[in-house]
Design a protein around this nucleic acid. Sequence first.
DNA 1: AAATAATCCTGCGGGC
DNA 2: TGCCCGCAGGATTATT
Length: 270
Amino acid sequence: MPELPEVEVSRRGLEPFIAGRTVTAAVLRTPRLRNDIPEGLTALLPGLHLQAIHRRGKYLLFDFGCGQLLLHLGMSGSLRLVPPGTPPQKHDHFDLCFPDTVMRFRDPRRFGVLDWLEGLGQQHPLLNALGIEPLTDDFSGDWLYQATRARRAPIKPVLMDAHLIVGIGNIYASESLFLAGISPLRAACRIGRERCERLAGAVKETLAASIAAGGSSVRDYVHSDGGAGCFQLQCAVYDRAGTSCTHCGTPIRSTRQAGRSTYWCPCCQT
DNA sequence: AAATAATCCTGCGGGC
DNA sequence: TGCCCGCAGGATTATT
């Protein structure tokens, strides 16, 4: 389940091996994922020079100067580097081939996005409404405090609202709230300045720690051709309903918020 | 304006 | 053993 850390680790793992190279071929095996994939995509890519890979939220942007390839991993997507000639497996939808390696996109549930944006310095419409990047200095306790004053919904779904803050998925939302000692059920507007400060810090810490954990195994992640392709830190609360809180021993509780499972310690989180 | 529900899809685990 | 059901997840869209 790629959240921001997995996307960033993929970006860092891929860039040294394919940035600066020229595309030799592109192969598409699926006509649509979450979007209709543009008709001429595989024809226009060969010969283009990949300048850099950027990330915005959970989107990866492959920058060719004259245009960008936009890719979202959805909920089950992964990117790997495989040797040329490696036979594709089920759910391998797209290959971007370079002289000595192939970037292969696999996505069993097909919630991913693959699109092309022609032109220099354009911004894809899917990026227009995205919120703040949580790992930048702009995202602070003060920013979070101001941004949540009019939000009466529980803090957990608010944290996951990509129009407000990008990159925080279901797992890291629960984990960040645990670290900050804040109940996921608490109305966002009823969290004070000081606790917003703690929460912003907890979000940064949780995401950064996960990137660091993945970062140490980037090669394995991007180069492995099997396995879950998922490396999240040991979770303190997520998917631990009924087990003892690591801090106080109270049984972890779970519920559903806005259609998503939420986990928290009723003792440590208020 | 904000909050919620439905939607896309496949794999997997539980229950019978 | 195998089938059915529910659930998992991100983000868009539609609906209150």
